[in-house]
Design a protein around this nucleic acid. Structure first.
Lengths: 151, 151
DNA sequence: TTCAATCATTGACGTTCTCAACGAAGCATG
DNA sequence: CATGCTTCGTTGAGAACGTCAATGATTGAA
C-alpha cells in the first residue's frame, strides 16, 4: 500500500536508485523553497550564499567562485548587485592589487541574519519528513561529496 | 590539521551547515560528471532521465513533467529531441486522445542500457569517498525529501 | 628584464527556467 | 444534448543561468 506518488503520477521509478537524480530533484525543491523564503528580502539562494561568505570571511572573488562552483564572471554580476544595494563592498588588497576582497557592510550583516533565519525556517519545512538526527547524517554525507571537485 | 579545502581556497564555511547549499553543490558536481559520462552517447542528464522513464513505464508527458519537476514545455523539447533520433516515439492513447505516452524504441532501450552503465560508472567515482552502505543511506534520505513537492 | 600565470572584468553565446496563451479533448452539470 | 470547467500537449517569448574566450592590470619566476 502507499505505492503511488500522487493520483495520476508515475510512482516510484528506477531513477529513485540513481543518487544523482535524487540529488538534482532534492536540490531543485530546496532551491525553490529557499528562493521563496528569500524573495521578500530581495535575495536568491545565489546572492544569499555570496553574502554569507562575505559576512563570514571576506573572501576574494576567485575564492568565492571556487567555493560556490561558479564562473568568476557570475561572481562579478552577483557582487555588483549586492554592492549596488550597499550590502557588500569590494576592498582592494594591498599585498596583491589584482584581487579585491568582498566584505559585508553593516546593512549586509543585518540583512544576512534576517535571511539566515528565513532560510532555516523554510529548511525545516523541507526536511520535515526527516528527524533532526537524520538531517545531521544527511549533511555529513553531502559534505563529503559536495566538494569533490576541489582536490 | 587538514582544515583547508585547497591551497588558496576558502576552507570550511558556515554554508557547510546549510543542507540546501550542500545539496546544490553536490548536485552540480554530480550533474557535471553525469553529463560528461553521457556526452559520448549524445545524451545529457535531462534527456537520460526522460529516456529512463520511457523505457521503464511509458509515461505521459504530464507524468514526466511532474516526476522530473520540469515544465511541460521542457518535456516537449526533450521528447522532440529523443524522437528525432528514433530513441522514443509518442503513442496516442485511445482512452484519452489529449495525451500521448512516450515509449522507448528498441534503439532507445539499447542506448539506455549503455547510458545507464556509463552513469553508474561515473557515479561510483563521485561517491568514492563514501562506502557502499553510506551511499545507500544517502539515497534513502534523499528519497524522502526529493519528492516533497508532490503531496 | 622578460615571460608565464593569475585576477577581475566584459561580452557573447547557448542552454535552461518560467509564464502566458492556444486548440483539442475530456468531464461534469444542467 | 449543450454548457462551462478542467486537463493535455504545444508554441512562443523573456528572464535567468552556465560556459567560454578575450582583455588589462598585476604578480612571480626564470
Amino acid at each position: 500500500m502507499e505505492a503511488e506518488r500522487t493520483a495520476a503520477g508515475i510512482g516510484p521509478s528506477s531513477l529513485d536508485s540513481d543518487a544523482s537524480f535524487l540529488l538534482a530533484r532534492a536540490s531543485a525543491v530546496a532551491a525553490a523553497a529557499g528562493n521563496g523564503a528569500l524573495a521578500g528580502l530581495g535575495l536568491k539562494v545565489r546572492s544569499y550564499s555570496v553574502l554569507a561568505l562575505a559576512v563570514e570571511c571576506s573572501p576574494t572573488q576567485r575564492g568565492l567562485a571556487a567555493h560556490l562552483r561558479l564562473d568568476p564572471s557570475q561572481i562579478v554580476a552577483l557582487v555588483d548587485d549586492l554592492e549596488s544595494r550597499g550590502l557588500v563592498h569590494r576592498r582592494p588588497v594591498p599585498s596583491d592589487r589584482r584581487t579585491r576582497t568582498v566584505e559585508a557592510t553593516a546593512q549586509g550583516v543585518s540583512l544576512f541574519t534576517a535571511a539566515r533565519a528565513a532560510v532555516r525556517s523554510v529548511e525545516r519545512a523541507v526536511h520535515s519528513s526527516l528527524s533532526e538526527a537524520e538531517v545531521d547524517v544527511l549533511r555529513g554525507l553531502l559534505l563529503r561529496i559536495a566538494y569533490s571537485d576541489l582536490t
